[in-house]
Write a protein that binds this DNA or RNA. Structure first.
Lengths: 220, 220
DNA sequence: CAAGAACCGTACCGTACGGTACTTTGGGAG
DNA sequence: CTCCCAAAGTACCGTACGGTACGGTTCTTG
C-alpha cells in the first residue's frame, strides 16, 4: 500500500519500481548510506559511491538513472526498513497502554536521533529549496507518514476503549509529537551533540506521556 | 552580550567583528540573502553574489575572507535583526499575560515560517554533517537563543506573579515550544507548502496556549 | 566449449565553482 | 590638477564533480 502510493504520487523515476532491488543493488545503497552518514552530502559523489561499494559508475547510472535517482532510491530503501522498527502496541489494559506510549516515545526519539535518519533528513532539507526536488515529500511519506498512520490508529483504538478522550486523532497525535520531540529534532539536525540534547530521554519520555494524559486522559 | 559570546565562543573568522559593517557591505549581505531565499544554497555562488550586488568578487574576499566567512556574516547579520521582532511582554494582569502568550505563539510561528529563516536553517542543516562548520551553533545562538532567553524571562516573571506554576522555567519553555511548533518547523524545512502546514495558525496558537495553561496554569 | 551479457576499473570530457590577478574607473585629499 | 586608494569588472587557474565511453574480466546460458 505505502509503496504503491509513493511510486504513483510523485511520478518517481522509471527506475527502481517497488522493491525490485537485487542484493547487489542493496549492497550499493547500503554503502552509499554509510558514506552519507560519514561525510554528509558533500561526500556523496558518484565516484566515491562506486569506489566504496566496488562497483562501476556505469552500473550506478544504469541502475538508478542519475545521482538524484540514486538518492531517491536510498530514501525509499531506508524507508522500507522503518515500518518494522516501531513495536507492536499493547491495548490490553489502561496501564499497559500507558506503558506502551512511553515505549513509543522512546522509540520515536531513537529513530529521529539515528545517524541515518539525521543524514537523510539533512540531505532532503538541503535540497528542499529546489521545489522540483521530490526528496522532501518522499521522506515525509516514508518516515513520518508510516509512524503517523500507525500512531493515529492506536490512538483511535485507545479512545474507543475509553483510555483517552479527544475529538480528532490526527490532531491529538500532533500534540503528542510536540510534547515528545519539542525542538530536539531540529537541534540535532543543526548539529548539536546528542548527549547534550537528549540527556536522560527515558525520563523525558515519561514526563511527556504524563503531560499527554493530563490533556487527554479520562478522569479517574 | 550575545554578540560577544558568539565572537568569542566559536573563534569566528577575523573578519566582521560585531557590527562593523559598512552600508555597502550590508547591501551585499542583503542581496546575498535574497539570492539564498530565491534559489537555495546552490544559487549562492560567489559569482552570482557579486553580480547581483554589483560588486567585485575581489571585494567579497577582502571583506569576508572566503565563502564560509560570507555565509557566517549573513547569519550574524540576519540574527541581529531578530531581537526586535518579538514584541514586548505584558504582565499587567493574568488575562493580559495569557493574551500575550497567544501573540507570542503567533510571532514565533511567523518567524520560523519566514522565508529567510527557512533558507538560513536549510543552509546550516545542510552543512551540519561537517562538524567543523560553525553555522549550526551560530544559528542556535542568534535565533533560538535570543527568543529562548526572552521567553524564559517572562515565564519566570509570570510564575512569580502566580499566573503560572512550575519548577524549571527553561524546561517549561521547551514544553511551550513543543505545543506551539510541533512538527511544523521540520515539515516546512522539508519543503511542505506553508498554506498546507499552517492553515488557521491563530486558532492553533490559541489551542496550544490553552493546553499550556492546562499543564501549568494556577487553579481557578 | 563458445557466445553473450553483466559488470568492474579506469580514463576521459565538459562544466561550474572557489579563489586570485590584473586592468580600469571614480572619487576624495593635498 | 595630480596623486592615491578603494572598488568594479573581467579574465584566468586549478580542481572537483556528473556523466559517458571503452577495454578487460567474470558469470550465465545454450
Amino acid at each position: 500500500m505505502q509503496s504503491a502510493s509513493v511510486s504513483e504520487s510523485q511520478g518517481m523515476s522509471e527506475f527502481i519500481r517497488d522493491e525490485n532491488l537485487t542484493p547487489r543493488q542493496q549492497e550499493v545503497l547500503e554503502s552509499a548510506l554509510a558514506l552519507l552518514v560519514e561525510g554528509g552530502e558533500k561526500a556523496l559523489t558518484t565516484a566515491k559511491i562506486a569506489s566504496a561499494s566496488n562497483c562501476s559508475k556505469e552500473s550506478l547510472y544504469k541502475w538508478f538513472g542519475d545521482r538524484d535517482g540514486l538518492i531517491s532510491a536510498m530514501m525509499a530503501f531506508q524507508g522500507s526498513k522503518v515500518g518494522a522498527a516501531v513495536g507492536q502496541e499493547d491495548l490490553g489494559s489502561a496501564s499497559a497502554f500507558k506503558n506502551y506510549l512511553v515505549r513509543f516515545a522512546c522509540e520515536l526519539l531513537s529513530v529521529l536521533a539515528g545517524d541515518t535518519s539525521l543524514a537523510l533528513n539533512r540531505l532532503a532539507i538541503g535540497q528542499a529549496s529546489n521545489d522540483a526536488s521530490p526528496l522532501g515529500p518522499l521522506l515525509i511519506e516514508n518516515g513520518r507518514g508510516v509512524i503517523e498512520t500507525k500512531a493515529v490508529g492506536f490512538l483511535h483504538s485507545a479512545e474507543q476503549k475509553n483510555y483517552l478522550t479527544f475529538a480528532d486523532a490526527r490532531q491529538t497525535y500532533h500534540v503528542l509529537y510536540g510534547l515528545i520531540v519539542r525542538d530536539i529534532h531540529v537541534r540535532l539536525l543543526l548539529g548539536e551533540r546528542r548527549e547534550f540534547v537528549m540527556k536522560n530521554f527515558e525520563r523525558d519520555a515519561q514526563i511527556a506521556i504524563a503531560q499527554f494524559y493530563q490533556l487527554y486522559g479520562v478522569e479517574e
